[in-house]
Design a protein around this nucleic acid. Structure first.
Lengths: 239, 239
DNA sequence: ATTTCCATGATTTTCGAAAATATTCTATTG
DNA sequence: CAATAGAATATTTTCGAAAATCATGGAAAT
């Protein structure tokens, strides 16, 4: 059965209580890795995790195996686990793979999407805009909780675009790649982001939305450029 | 130590000795699911698995978590695991996703592939042909071990085609989708395959190879057709 | 000075029992 | 007879100790 948290969203705020400790460990570990609470490259000692989360080895190991499949954790046999390192190569590969997956899913959604699909795009675009406005009002303070809410809205918008593709695999892959790339985005969003190019992300979103609703082939091009711009700025910051 | 290499010509990693029991459980479970030794849809009771493989719960659960990420196993919280069911929808989605992934990887490989890439294609094509000839000689007997060897060679050929793509993600996804679709192919290969359309698979492989070595855009079209033909025949047999 | 070997401590991996939860069966009620 | 509640059973999930393995450091040998 697919994990509802994977589909539902990114953040640790579980709308539903996890049924097992293994599931809880998975969600908390993933949230901490993505948000940087567990530093990239750092070894994940089981004894330390046991104390940190108040769990036993079994559910922790289960969660770590899952996270390893999602490339958030690496491991060597008998040598334990570590938070997957960040690298320019990885963000590049993740971004290009994401573009491949999401552009195909967007093409199919534009072909098959109905009124509900369109409504979902408009609704999530609006919600994202509201959140961006709210954060602009309290400018200066890069509150990490607020940033996480915005990232969740951002994810919901992009997911709405491809939600009518009809392929569970493409949607799951898109979710996984979204999580992976979020690891790279978050530091630059919470940090004070000096030297970032002046970029109107909201305008990019609006263009993508408009093209998608027009069922125009431009939508995939705009989507790819949107992701490549973000990736390039991250890579530049990783000098 | 029990060597699964006799049963599993399935993957390259199956030939190397697993370092942990969890890894061994993963390999043996996967081989048994793909080969049909564990029936699709059937519940995987831990007590039964413990006896069958002579392992404790921990490594078994670890392996099952990994297999769940690869869509070979499904589970519901507190209700245990089951072999992932087979369905027309799944083989369709898996095939189309595989085409998306491998065609992109083939395009990149044709763009960047060097002499070693070409040599790998020619070598694996030859090895596959030898195996097919060997099996044609002993026709009538659909030996499951021989079929597994052939599937392994088949996989190696297709992997050689895309091996120069430069993306670890695309290669890993292709491997996973290859395993998934193998579950669907094996029954029809071991069974006596009545009513199958007369199809020269070797000729298809040669055409794909030739086009790839010519760096012709036809290669991706031929590859897609190759996979779609197989998928269609499987779906037809699933009436 | 460098290497090799072994003891020591740290860490991962595995096990089987215990706890938690689901499922089945039976008895009872409406 | 159908439906329900509760006990009994089956199964999953979790725990902490034990076993296996790796990492570290120091002594002996070259």
């Amino acid at each position: 059965m697919t994990n509802p948290a994977t589909i539902a969203g990114l953040t640790s705020e579980a709308t539903t209580e996890p049924a097992t400790l293994g599931e809880a460990a998975y969600q908390r570990l993933r949230a901490d890795i993505v948000a940087g609470g567990l530093e990239a490259g750092k070894p994940l000692r089981l004894e330390a995790l046991r104390q940190r989360y108040g769990l036993s080895f079994s559910p922790l190991r289960e969660a770590l195996m899952r996270l390893q499949s999602e490339r958030l954790v690496v491991s060597a046999a008998l040598r334990g686990f570590a938070v997957a390192p960040l690298s320019r190569e990885e963000i590049k590969d993740a971004t290009e793979t994401r573009i491949l997956i999401e552009c195909e899913a967007l093409r199919r959604s534009m072909r098959d999407g109905d009124d509900d699909w369109e409504a979902g795009i408009v609704a999530t675009f609006h919600a994202l805009g509201r959140q961006v406005d709210r954060m602009a009002a309290t400018a200066g303070k890069a509150d990490v909780a607020e940033v996480l809410v915005m990232e969740e809205r951002h994810h919901q918008f992009h997911r709405a675009l491809i939600s009518a593709c009809g392929s569970p695999r493409l949607l799951e892959l898109a979710d996984q790649l979204s999580i992976e790339t979020q690891r790279y985005r978050l530091p630059s969003l919470t940090g004070r982001n000096i030297g970032a190019p002046p970029r109107d992300v909201s305008a990019e979103h609006r263009e993508i939305m408009d093209a998608a609703l027009r069922r125009s082939g431009d939508a995939t091009t705009l989507l790819a450029e949107h992701y490549r711009r973000t990736s390039a700025s991250i890579q530049a910051a990783m000098a």
